[in-house]
């Protein structure tokens, strides 16, 4: 099949994505360093980790505020909205493809096109991460930055403790997402194809 390039990632999306990725990597590194702080094996000096984490967290929040309206205002929105339509059966179809058809090198039932850049699994994961995980991690993070805003007790549990627990749990899930996300992105025709795509804007179809 001839190589075909489709312009899928507009400039604003690429800038957002780059900044987002960098910030999240810093946040994960400093977050892990604080959570598993150990006087004998300091990974990142604690006070430094706190400052970096706080600054990156605030920047991430600002960056998210850019992502959301940009998506609503541009046609990029439809990849998420349309991508989620009839999501259950379509996800099952995609799984069947991965398990039985892809090993036989059959074509994907959801090829990447200008109209449909995400397969159902991508649509689902990206939506969960962007619409549930990121807002949760950002709001709990901001709340921890201003702990006086947190309810002292929620159903008898310490509000601060619950907020912190939720924050680190979601942080963990985002880290897992990141690992899987980067790995899945290596599954293009060439390992680097997708990474080039999110930098240049053009997705390569083979």
């Amino acid at each position: 099949m001839a190589e075909e390039k489709i312009y899928l990632y507009p400039v604003w999306l690429r800038i957002w994505h780059g900044i987002n990725a960098l910030l999240i990597i810093f946040l994960i590194a400093t977050g892990i360093s604080m959570q598993y702080a150990n006087p004998e094996y300091p990974f990142i000096r604690f006070d430094l980790a706190v400052s970096i984490h706080n600054i990156c967290g605030v920047l991430l929040a600002i960056n998210y505020v850019i992502f959301l309206p940009s998506n609503l205002a541009t046609s990029n929105r439809r990849y998420y909205v349309d991508g989620l339509k009839n999501i259950g059966p379509r996800m099952m179809r995609m799984m069947r493809y991965y398990l039985t058809e892809q090993p036989k090198k059959k074509p994907s039932p959801f090829p990447v096109t200008k109209e449909n850049k995400f397969n159902p699994l991508q649509a689902m994961t990206y939506s969960i991460v962007m619409v549930i995980f990121l807002p949760l991690v950002i709001t709990t993070g901001l709340a921890l930055l201003f702990p006086e805003t947190i309810a002292k007790e929620v159903f008898g549990y310490s509000g601060l403790f619950l907020t912190a627990l939720l924050h680190s749990a979601i942080g963990f899930l985002i880290s897992i997402f990141l690992i899987v996300h980067i790995y899945v992105c290596t599954t293009g025709k060439k390992i680097t194809d997708n990474f080039k795509g999110i930098i240049t804007g053009y997705h390569t179809n083979h």
Binding site: F46, S158, F161, A164, I176, V180
Partner: peptide
């Protein structure tokens, strides 16, 4: 253990969640 009044970053590690997160990470890898 659950109703901890204070949260001290780095000191409040829940053993169960620690194990659970390592297991999940392990499975993914």
């Amino acid at each position: 253990i659950i109703l901890n009044d204070a949260y001290v970053i780095g000191a409040n590690r829940n053993h169960f969640l620690n194990v659970a997160s390592l297991v999940i990470l392990g499975l993914v890898l």
